[in-house]
Nucleic acid binder design. Structure first.
Lengths: 204, 204
DNA sequence: TGCGTTTTAAATCAATCGTTATAAAATGTA
DNA sequence: TACATTTTATAACGATTGATTTAAAACGCA
């Protein structure tokens, strides 16, 4: 009983993600955004509200598509393998990121979150979820002996989380394969049970 | 033989750093900047050039003050201690960062560098220098036996660099002492020579 | 076929953007 | 004291900002 929309919300949201992801929040004007979405500014305001609301929806959309399924996919694997595969994928993604967009969540964490309580909460929540993924992997590995007991699981999960974020920042200005693949080696080595420690505990 | 300036360049540059550091490049207008520096916009343009040039000078100033002396100060210490002290200071700085400004270099790496070749080069160069500091520490430690030989020095340096950047990002939305102090433990543990490996190599 | 409703398109709003022009103020030198 | 030079303060430039108004267009329903 009214004029129908000429666009699908999900499709134009994906285009909004692309724009905000590449240029950031401040550097993207409403006109940039509308053009990228293939809409008029009036349609953007009508469908989503103001600029901040579009960014919020775009970030949610990005997070859902980037973390939602992936965590589940990796968590089916053996713990150490899951972590390895996770970082392998992150590194490949970083190296093939020709436009140097990085990770939109990390970008939000630095540009938007510090000056906006709501985004601060959203970003923190996602980081907690990622940390939770790492924590569950480590705990499983510690139980079945494939991951060291020499460090607290929560500490190791934090290390993995900060390594992930570090790679995302580093790759933004130095997307060098040798650098990224090199730095992850000690971290993965850190997870492996110390052969000698196992021996020690087996002796007495 | 001309009217003298009413300000010292270093003093107003420090104020410019403060402004850009807190709000970023795009969200800071020339008027914001001039007000923060205690100058008129005309004076800003006369003394520094355009907005981008002020940011460039401010970033250089920040880097000089943040990394210049610090690296030398830490490098005098024993290698493992130098690395520990470095991260201790970063964590303390992150936890006492009430305004959540983070690290201006990291902020530049994400907001400005990806769309500006010159800043890309500047940021990359500083990161190379920090990596160099870590590398020299690790190499010294590997020589005197206080740091493990189980991983390549260059790999370990990369790990430390990414951990540093990770902390800087993580602290921006989750400045929790337990989290930051916890995640650094395994990284520092990773550096220590494996007691058993030393034993092994000492046996035959 | 109109009616109510929503979405479009186009124009426009005041405000702010980065930047500059103009002229007064402040110096050393002649 | 007058001149040349630079920095100040003020005002303004055109362009763009986020956001809204107006009216035409496109539907379901009566």
């Amino acid at each position: 009983m009214a004029r129908p929309r000429e666009f699908e919300e999900e499709k134009v949201l994906l285009l909004a993600v692309e724009q905000f992801w590449e240029r950031g929040y401040e550097a993207t004007s409403i006109r940039d955004l509308a053009q990228a979405m293939g809409l008029t500014t009036a349609s953007v305001y009508n469908a989503f509200g103001d600029k901040r609301a579009v960014y919020r929806r775009a970030l949610d959309f990005y997070v859902e598509r980037s973390f939602g399924d992936r965590v589940g996919r990796f968590e089916a694997k053996p713990p150490l393998l899951a972590i390895k595969a996770f970082f392998d994928e992150i590194i490949e993604r970083s190296l093939s990121d020709v436009k140097r967009k990085g990770c939109m969540l990390v970008n939000s964490a630095l540009e938007v979150a510090p000056h906006d309580e709501e985004f601060q909460r959203v970003v923190a929540e996602v980081l907690v979820q990622v940390e939770g993924f790492f924590l569950r992997c480590v705990q499983r590995g510690q139980k079945d002996g494939t991951i060291t007991n020499g460090q607290a699981a929560s500490d190791l999960a934090g290390t993995l989380l900060s390594t992930l974020l570090g790679i995302r920042v580093l790759a933004r200005t130095r997307p060098e394969r040798a650098l990224l693949e090199g730095l992850i080696k000690p971290v993965l080595g850190l997870l492996e049970p110390a052969a000698a420690t196992q021996l020690e505990s087996a002796v007495p």
